[in-house]
Design a protein around this nucleic acid. Structure first.
Lengths: 153, 153
DNA sequence: TTTCATGTAACAACATATGTTACGTTAAAG
DNA sequence: CTTTAACGTAACATATGTTGTTACATGAAA
Protein backbone atom coordinates (compact mmCIF):
# COMPACT_ATOMS: atom_id res chain seq x y z
CA UNK A 1 0.00 0.00 0.00
CA UNK A 2 1.01 3.62 -0.42
CA UNK A 3 2.48 5.12 2.72
CA UNK A 4 1.57 8.67 3.67
CA UNK A 5 4.63 10.86 3.76
CA UNK A 6 3.22 14.15 4.96
CA UNK A 7 4.68 13.87 8.43
CA UNK A 8 8.07 12.88 7.09
CA UNK A 9 8.08 15.67 4.53
CA UNK A 10 6.96 18.35 6.91
CA UNK A 11 9.53 17.41 9.53
CA UNK A 12 12.15 17.62 6.86
CA UNK A 13 11.32 21.18 5.92
CA UNK A 14 10.81 22.26 9.54
CA UNK A 15 14.32 21.13 10.41
CA UNK A 16 15.68 23.06 7.49
CA UNK A 17 13.68 26.12 8.44
CA UNK A 18 15.09 26.07 11.96
CA UNK A 19 18.47 26.73 10.40
CA UNK A 20 17.32 29.62 8.27
CA UNK A 21 17.23 33.32 9.12
CA UNK A 22 14.85 34.64 6.51
CA UNK A 23 11.45 33.27 5.50
CA UNK A 24 11.51 30.26 3.23
CA UNK A 25 9.34 30.34 0.14
CA UNK A 26 7.09 27.45 -0.82
CA UNK A 27 9.27 27.06 -3.86
CA UNK A 28 12.41 26.57 -1.79
CA UNK A 29 10.69 24.12 0.54
CA UNK A 30 9.25 22.27 -2.41
CA UNK A 31 12.75 21.71 -3.74
CA UNK A 32 13.82 20.36 -0.35
CA UNK A 33 10.91 17.94 -0.27
CA UNK A 34 11.19 17.09 -3.92
CA UNK A 35 7.68 18.21 -4.69
CA UNK A 36 5.50 21.06 -5.83
CA UNK A 37 5.00 24.45 -4.11
CA UNK A 38 1.27 23.93 -3.98
CA UNK A 39 1.72 20.68 -2.12
CA UNK A 40 3.91 22.52 0.36
CA UNK A 41 1.30 25.20 0.94
CA UNK A 42 -1.33 22.55 1.42
CA UNK A 43 0.50 20.75 4.17
CA UNK A 44 1.95 23.90 5.75
CA UNK A 45 -1.55 25.33 6.01
CA UNK A 46 -2.24 22.70 8.63
CA UNK A 47 0.77 23.74 10.66
CA UNK A 48 -0.20 27.37 10.42
CA UNK A 49 -3.67 26.59 11.73
CA UNK A 50 -1.98 25.18 14.85
CA UNK A 51 0.26 28.22 15.15
CA UNK A 52 3.44 26.27 14.49
CA UNK A 53 4.43 28.32 11.46
CA UNK A 54 3.45 31.64 9.97
CA UNK A 55 3.18 32.71 6.36
CA UNK A 56 3.64 36.11 4.77
CA UNK A 57 2.42 37.12 1.36
CA UNK A 58 4.09 39.44 -1.07
CA UNK A 59 7.65 40.41 -1.74
CA UNK A 60 10.06 38.90 0.78
CA UNK A 61 7.33 36.72 2.16
CA UNK A 62 7.34 33.02 2.89
CA UNK A 63 7.21 30.65 5.83
CA UNK A 64 8.72 31.02 9.26
CA UNK A 65 8.68 28.86 12.36
CA UNK A 66 6.49 30.53 14.95
CA UNK A 67 6.70 28.10 17.85
CA UNK A 68 9.17 27.06 20.49
CA UNK A 69 10.82 23.92 19.11
CA UNK A 70 11.51 22.73 22.63
CA UNK A 71 7.85 22.55 23.54
CA UNK A 72 6.48 21.12 20.31
CA UNK A 73 6.52 17.38 19.88
CA UNK A 74 6.24 15.22 16.82
CA UNK A 75 2.75 14.39 18.05
CA UNK A 76 1.77 18.05 17.66
CA UNK A 77 3.04 18.02 14.12
CA UNK A 78 1.34 14.73 13.38
CA UNK A 79 -1.88 16.33 14.52
CA UNK A 80 -1.22 19.45 12.44
CA UNK A 81 -0.85 17.47 9.24
CA UNK A 82 -4.27 15.97 9.77
CA UNK A 83 -3.49 12.86 11.80
CA UNK A 84 -3.08 10.56 8.83
CA UNK A 85 -4.01 6.93 9.43
CA UNK A 86 -1.30 5.04 11.28
CA UNK A 87 -2.50 1.50 10.74
CA UNK A 88 -2.75 0.24 7.21
CA UNK A 89 -5.23 -2.50 7.98
CA UNK A 90 -8.93 -2.53 8.70
CA UNK A 91 -12.09 -4.52 8.61
CA UNK A 92 -13.66 -5.86 5.52
CA UNK A 93 -17.19 -4.80 6.24
CA UNK A 94 -19.62 -3.67 8.83
CA UNK A 95 -21.90 -6.63 9.34
CA UNK A 96 -22.88 -5.73 12.88
CA UNK A 97 -25.22 -8.66 13.17
CA UNK A 98 -22.58 -11.27 12.48
CA UNK A 99 -21.02 -12.53 15.69
CA UNK A 100 -18.03 -13.88 13.79
CA UNK A 101 -17.42 -10.38 12.56
CA UNK A 102 -17.65 -9.08 16.10
CA UNK A 103 -15.10 -11.57 17.37
CA UNK A 104 -12.66 -10.88 14.59
CA UNK A 105 -13.06 -7.12 14.81
CA UNK A 106 -12.57 -7.18 18.53
CA UNK A 107 -9.36 -9.18 18.33
CA UNK A 108 -7.89 -7.09 15.55
CA UNK A 109 -9.01 -3.74 16.92
CA UNK A 110 -7.16 -4.46 20.09
CA UNK A 111 -3.97 -5.08 18.16
CA UNK A 112 -4.50 -1.94 16.10
CA UNK A 113 -5.24 0.15 19.15
CA UNK A 114 -2.16 -1.04 21.00
CA UNK A 115 0.10 -0.40 18.03
CA UNK A 116 -1.27 3.07 17.50
CA UNK A 117 -0.92 3.92 21.18
CA UNK A 118 2.75 2.98 21.12
CA UNK A 119 3.23 5.07 18.03
CA UNK A 120 1.62 8.13 19.57
CA UNK A 121 3.56 7.65 22.74
CA UNK A 122 6.80 7.74 20.83
CA UNK A 123 5.80 10.87 18.94
CA UNK A 124 4.97 12.53 22.22
CA UNK A 125 8.42 11.79 23.53
CA UNK A 126 10.33 13.60 20.79
CA UNK A 127 10.42 17.38 20.55
CA UNK A 128 11.32 19.38 17.50
CA UNK A 129 14.43 20.68 19.21
CA UNK A 130 15.51 17.15 20.09
CA UNK A 131 15.28 16.29 16.43
CA UNK A 132 17.19 19.41 15.56
CA UNK A 133 19.91 18.53 18.04
CA UNK A 134 20.17 15.08 16.56
CA UNK A 135 20.65 16.69 13.19
CA UNK A 136 23.35 19.02 14.49
CA UNK A 137 25.13 16.09 16.08
CA UNK A 138 25.22 14.32 12.75
CA UNK A 139 26.43 17.52 11.14
CA UNK A 140 29.29 17.78 13.60
CA UNK A 141 30.26 14.16 13.08
CA UNK A 142 30.58 14.87 9.43
CA UNK A 143 32.50 18.07 10.10
CA UNK A 144 30.22 19.96 7.83
CA UNK A 145 28.56 23.33 8.06
CA UNK A 146 24.92 24.00 7.49
CA UNK A 147 25.68 25.63 4.17
CA UNK A 148 27.42 22.56 2.85
CA UNK A 149 24.31 20.60 3.70
CA UNK A 150 22.17 22.61 1.35
CA UNK A 151 19.93 20.86 -1.09
CA UNK A 152 20.37 20.88 -4.81
CA UNK A 153 19.20 24.26 -6.07
CA UNK B 1 -5.83 5.79 3.01
CA UNK B 2 -7.30 2.45 2.06
CA UNK B 3 -6.90 -0.19 4.75
CA UNK B 4 -6.01 -3.71 3.76
CA UNK B 5 -8.73 -6.11 4.83
CA UNK B 6 -7.29 -9.45 3.82
CA UNK B 7 -6.48 -10.51 7.37
CA UNK B 8 -9.89 -9.47 8.62
CA UNK B 9 -11.67 -11.20 5.77
CA UNK B 10 -9.73 -14.41 6.02
CA UNK B 11 -10.23 -14.68 9.75
CA UNK B 12 -13.91 -14.23 9.18
CA UNK B 13 -14.18 -17.15 6.80
CA UNK B 14 -11.86 -19.34 8.86
CA UNK B 15 -14.08 -18.95 11.89
CA UNK B 16 -17.09 -19.87 9.84
CA UNK B 17 -15.28 -22.87 8.37
CA UNK B 18 -14.44 -24.15 11.84
CA UNK B 19 -18.15 -24.58 12.39
CA UNK B 20 -18.78 -26.43 9.15
CA UNK B 21 -18.68 -30.15 8.51
CA UNK B 22 -18.38 -30.25 4.74
CA UNK B 23 -15.99 -28.28 2.51
CA UNK B 24 -16.95 -24.69 1.84
CA UNK B 25 -16.91 -23.47 -1.74
CA UNK B 26 -15.28 -20.23 -2.77
CA UNK B 27 -18.72 -19.02 -3.69
CA UNK B 28 -20.06 -19.59 -0.17
CA UNK B 29 -17.05 -17.95 1.41
CA UNK B 30 -17.32 -15.04 -0.99
CA UNK B 31 -20.85 -14.40 0.17
CA UNK B 32 -19.64 -14.44 3.76
CA UNK B 33 -16.92 -11.92 3.00
CA UNK B 34 -19.09 -9.89 0.68
CA UNK B 35 -16.78 -10.30 -2.24
CA UNK B 36 -15.99 -12.37 -5.29
CA UNK B 37 -15.05 -16.08 -5.42
CA UNK B 38 -11.85 -15.28 -7.28
CA UNK B 39 -10.77 -12.93 -4.54
CA UNK B 40 -11.41 -15.72 -2.06
CA UNK B 41 -9.28 -18.17 -4.00
CA UNK B 42 -6.52 -15.62 -4.23
CA UNK B 43 -6.26 -15.05 -0.54
CA UNK B 44 -6.95 -18.68 0.41
CA UNK B 45 -4.11 -19.76 -1.86
CA UNK B 46 -1.74 -18.13 0.60
CA UNK B 47 -3.20 -20.10 3.50
CA UNK B 48 -2.98 -23.33 1.53
CA UNK B 49 0.69 -22.70 0.82
CA UNK B 50 1.24 -22.62 4.58
CA UNK B 51 -0.79 -25.79 5.07
CA UNK B 52 -3.51 -24.06 7.03
CA UNK B 53 -6.29 -25.02 4.64
CA UNK B 54 -6.75 -27.52 1.83
CA UNK B 55 -8.70 -27.24 -1.38
CA UNK B 56 -10.40 -29.89 -3.46
CA UNK B 57 -11.50 -29.53 -7.03
CA UNK B 58 -14.55 -30.97 -8.67
CA UNK B 59 -17.90 -32.04 -7.44
CA UNK B 60 -18.27 -31.77 -3.68
CA UNK B 61 -14.97 -29.94 -3.49
CA UNK B 62 -14.10 -26.73 -1.70
CA UNK B 63 -12.02 -25.52 1.20
CA UNK B 64 -11.37 -27.21 4.52
CA UNK B 65 -9.31 -26.25 7.56
CA UNK B 66 -6.27 -28.51 7.67
CA UNK B 67 -4.50 -27.26 10.78
CA UNK B 68 -4.92 -27.43 14.53
CA UNK B 69 -6.65 -24.19 15.49
CA UNK B 70 -5.08 -24.37 18.92
CA UNK B 71 -1.56 -24.13 17.57
CA UNK B 72 -2.09 -21.56 14.86
CA UNK B 73 -1.91 -17.90 15.83
CA UNK B 74 -3.16 -14.80 14.10
CA UNK B 75 0.47 -14.10 13.31
CA UNK B 76 0.63 -17.27 11.22
CA UNK B 77 -2.41 -16.17 9.29
CA UNK B 78 -1.07 -12.66 8.88
CA UNK B 79 2.03 -14.22 7.37
CA UNK B 80 -0.04 -16.48 5.14
CA UNK B 81 -1.94 -13.57 3.61
CA UNK B 82 1.34 -12.00 2.57
CA UNK B 83 2.22 -9.87 5.58
CA UNK B 84 0.48 -6.73 4.37
CA UNK B 85 1.97 -3.44 5.50
CA UNK B 86 1.03 -2.58 9.07
CA UNK B 87 2.10 1.05 9.18
CA UNK B 88 0.43 3.45 6.78
CA UNK B 89 3.20 6.02 6.88
CA UNK B 90 6.63 6.22 5.33
CA UNK B 91 9.37 8.50 4.17
CA UNK B 92 9.02 10.98 1.42
CA UNK B 93 12.17 10.15 -0.43
CA UNK B 94 15.52 8.55 -0.28
CA UNK B 95 17.96 11.42 -0.15
CA UNK B 96 20.70 9.48 1.61
CA UNK B 97 23.07 12.42 1.50
CA UNK B 98 20.80 14.76 3.41
CA UNK B 99 21.47 14.67 7.12
CA UNK B 100 18.09 16.20 7.87
CA UNK B 101 16.53 13.28 6.10
CA UNK B 102 18.59 10.90 8.16
CA UNK B 103 17.52 12.48 11.42
CA UNK B 104 13.87 12.48 10.48
CA UNK B 105 13.93 8.96 9.15
CA UNK B 106 15.65 7.68 12.23
CA UNK B 107 13.13 9.24 14.58
CA UNK B 108 10.12 8.05 12.62
CA UNK B 109 11.48 4.59 11.89
CA UNK B 110 11.84 3.98 15.55
CA UNK B 111 8.21 4.84 16.13
CA UNK B 112 7.12 2.67 13.22
CA UNK B 113 9.23 -0.24 14.38
CA UNK B 114 7.91 -0.11 17.92
CA UNK B 115 4.31 0.05 16.76
CA UNK B 116 4.75 -2.86 14.41
CA UNK B 117 6.46 -4.95 17.09
CA UNK B 118 3.53 -4.44 19.44
CA UNK B 119 1.15 -5.41 16.71
CA UNK B 120 2.99 -8.62 15.89
CA UNK B 121 3.25 -9.46 19.54
CA UNK B 122 -0.47 -9.23 19.93
CA UNK B 123 -1.11 -11.42 16.89
CA UNK B 124 1.25 -14.00 18.32
CA UNK B 125 -0.74 -14.11 21.53
CA UNK B 126 -4.07 -15.07 19.95
CA UNK B 127 -4.73 -18.54 18.54
CA UNK B 128 -7.44 -19.44 16.10
CA UNK B 129 -9.14 -21.57 18.72
CA UNK B 130 -9.09 -18.69 21.18
CA UNK B 131 -10.89 -16.59 18.60
CA UNK B 132 -13.32 -19.42 17.99
CA UNK B 133 -14.03 -19.72 21.68
CA UNK B 134 -14.67 -16.02 21.89
CA UNK B 135 -17.16 -16.41 19.10
CA UNK B 136 -18.91 -19.32 20.82
CA UNK B 137 -19.09 -17.32 24.00
CA UNK B 138 -20.85 -14.52 22.15
CA UNK B 139 -23.14 -17.08 20.58
CA UNK B 140 -24.07 -18.49 23.97
CA UNK B 141 -24.71 -15.04 25.37
CA UNK B 142 -27.14 -14.47 22.58
CA UNK B 143 -28.70 -17.85 23.09
CA UNK B 144 -28.35 -18.63 19.44
CA UNK B 145 -27.25 -21.68 17.56
CA UNK B 146 -24.69 -21.74 14.82
CA UNK B 147 -27.36 -22.17 12.21
CA UNK B 148 -29.20 -19.03 13.26
CA UNK B 149 -25.98 -17.17 12.77
CA UNK B 150 -25.86 -17.94 9.07
CA UNK B 151 -25.17 -15.18 6.62
CA UNK B 152 -27.67 -13.82 4.19
CA UNK B 153 -27.97 -16.27 1.34
C1' DT C 1 -20.17 -36.46 -20.75
C1' DT C 2 -22.05 -33.17 -17.97
C1' DT C 3 -21.67 -30.54 -13.94
C1' DC C 4 -19.29 -28.50 -10.21
C1' DA C 5 -15.41 -26.90 -8.39
C1' DT C 6 -10.62 -24.80 -8.12
C1' DG C 7 -6.33 -22.25 -10.59
C1' DT C 8 -4.78 -18.43 -12.81
C1' DA C 9 -3.95 -14.88 -16.07
C1' DA C 10 -5.53 -10.76 -17.89
C1' DC C 11 -8.21 -6.93 -17.69
C1' DA C 12 -11.45 -3.36 -15.56
C1' DA C 13 -13.05 -0.43 -11.97
C1' DC C 14 -12.27 2.24 -8.06
C1' DA C 15 -10.13 4.86 -4.44
C1' DT C 16 -6.54 7.67 -2.72
C1' DA C 17 -2.66 10.41 -2.74
C1' DT C 18 0.02 13.33 -5.12
C1' DG C 19 1.07 16.54 -8.65
C1' DT C 20 -0.26 20.41 -11.72
C1' DT C 21 -2.64 24.39 -13.67
C1' DA C 22 -5.01 28.46 -13.20
C1' DC C 23 -6.41 32.36 -11.14
C1' DG C 24 -7.16 35.40 -7.18
C1' DT C 25 -5.12 38.15 -3.40
C1' DT C 26 -1.66 40.69 -0.89
C1' DA C 27 2.46 43.25 -0.16
C1' DA C 28 6.87 45.16 -1.16
C1' DA C 29 9.91 47.34 -4.69
C1' DG C 30 10.78 50.56 -8.02
C1' DC D 1 0.89 53.10 -9.44
C1' DT D 2 2.68 49.44 -11.95
C1' DT D 3 5.46 45.47 -11.63
C1' DT D 4 7.02 41.62 -9.32
C1' DA D 5 7.07 38.18 -5.76
C1' DA D 6 4.80 35.65 -2.84
C1' DC D 7 0.77 32.96 -0.67
C1' DG D 8 -4.43 30.79 -1.01
C1' DT D 9 -7.29 27.78 -3.09
C1' DA D 10 -10.19 25.44 -6.25
C1' DA D 11 -10.28 22.44 -9.95
C1' DC D 12 -8.28 19.18 -12.63
C1' DA D 13 -4.77 15.51 -14.00
C1' DT D 14 -1.79 11.70 -13.03
C1' DA D 15 -0.07 7.73 -10.75
C1' DT D 16 -0.47 3.84 -7.98
C1' DG D 17 -2.36 0.17 -5.62
C1' DT D 18 -6.21 -2.68 -4.33
C1' DT D 19 -10.09 -4.98 -5.39
C1' DG D 20 -13.39 -6.82 -8.53
C1' DT D 21 -14.47 -9.24 -12.86
C1' DT D 22 -14.14 -12.03 -16.98
C1' DA D 23 -12.39 -15.79 -19.33
C1' DC D 24 -10.62 -20.02 -19.86
C1' DA D 25 -8.07 -24.18 -18.35
C1' DT D 26 -7.98 -28.18 -15.25
C1' DG D 27 -9.61 -31.74 -12.37
C1' DA D 28 -13.01 -34.75 -10.09
C1' DA D 29 -17.39 -36.66 -9.11
C1' DA D 30 -22.15 -37.79 -10.62
Amino acid sequence: MKPDSKLSGVLHVLLHMLGMKSPATSEQLARMMGTNPVVVRRVMAGLRKQGLVASAKGHGGGWTVSCDPASVTLADIYKAVGEPTVIAMGHRSQMPGCLVEQSVNHALDEAFREAEAVFQKHLNAVTLSALSEDFNRRLAERGQTLEQQSHAV
